[in-house]
Amino acid sequence: MDDHLVGVLSNIGMISFIALSAYLLLIVGEISFGQQAFFAISAYASGIATAMWGWDFWPGLAWGTAVAAAAAVLVGIPTLRIRGLYFSIATLAFAEMVRLVFEVFKYQVEIDGEMVGPDGSDGFRDIRYIFENDITAVEYMLMIYGLLAAVLCAFFLLERSRLGSIFRMIGQDPVLAEMQGIDVTAYKILALGLAGLVAGIGGGLYAHLTTFVEPKIFNVMLGVHSLAYGLIGGLGTAFGPLIGVAIDIGFLESIRAISGYRMIAFGGLVAVLLIFRPRGLLDEAAVNWIRLRLRRRHA
C-alpha cells in the first residue's frame, strides 16, 4: 500500500474521533471550540505512560482517554451551567489554557542516557512504542479503523437508545426536555464526558503515530475544523462528521494541485452549506428519508 495513502487514511481516522467528539456536543445543542484540549490531554497522558512509564500501548491509550474524559467532566461542571455563546467562549478559553500549560509543562526522565518527556514548547519527542514494537504503518492504520468502527457502533447504539433521544431533545429544546423530566445539566455533563473520551482516543492514537507532539498542533484551528466537519457532513447521523473529515482531509488536503487553496475552499464550503443546508448534508430530514426508504425496501 502506498505510504502517502496510508498516511492520509490514518489521518482521516484519527481526526474522525475529534470530529465525532464535537458532533456529540452539537447534538446536545452546544458549540465547543475546545475539543482539541481533550485530544491534547490524551496525547500527552498516553505518551507519558508508554514512553516514560514503560506501559503497554493499550493501557496507555486507555489511561490517556480516561484522563481526557475526567478533564471534560471537570470542565463541564462549572461551564455547562452557562449556555450558548458563553459556553463556546469558555471552551475556547479552556483549550487555550491547556495549550499554554503544555507550553511550559516540563516533565522528563532519563531513559538509556537520553532525556524523554514533555519539554515545554519544544514538545514531547520519542513516543516510539509503535516503532519499538515493530507495528507497521498499515497495521497501525487498521488499529485506528478498528477503534473507529467500535466507536461508530457505540454511536449508532446511542442514537437508537433513549439516551440518544434525550441528547437530541436537549439540543432541540432544553426547556421542553426539562418538561419530560430530564435533568438537562446532568445529561450535558454526561455528553461532555463522552465527548472528551472520544476525543481522547483520537489524541492517544495521534501521539503514537507521529511519535512527536508539540503544543502548537492543538491550537484553535483544530477545534474549529472538528466543529465544521459535523456541520458539513450533517448532524443527522454519526456518518455526517466522517463525511466532513473525508471531504476535508481526503479531498482538499490530499490533492496537491489545490493544496495552497485548501483553507479557501474549506471556508467557502462551510459558508455555502450554512446557507443551503444549515445542519449539513446528512441532516435529520435526510437521514429520516433514507431510513424510511431502507425500511420500505425490507418490508
Binding site: 447504539l157 446511542l158 437508545s161 433513549r162 439516551l163 433521544s165 434525550i166 437530541r168 431533545m169 432541540q172 429544546d173 426547556v175 421542553l176 418538561m179 419530560q180 423530566g181 430530564i182 435529520e284 430530514a285 429520516n288
Partner: peptide, 29 residues
Amino acid sequence: RIFERLTVFENVWAAQHRRADVALRELVL
C-alpha cells in the same frame, strides 16, 4: 412545543423517561 427534528414516535417514546417503570440502565440497553 414539539421536538421538530425527532419523529412522531420518538417524541412520545422519549417522554417515557424517568417514569417509575423505566430503569436508569435502560437508557442504553
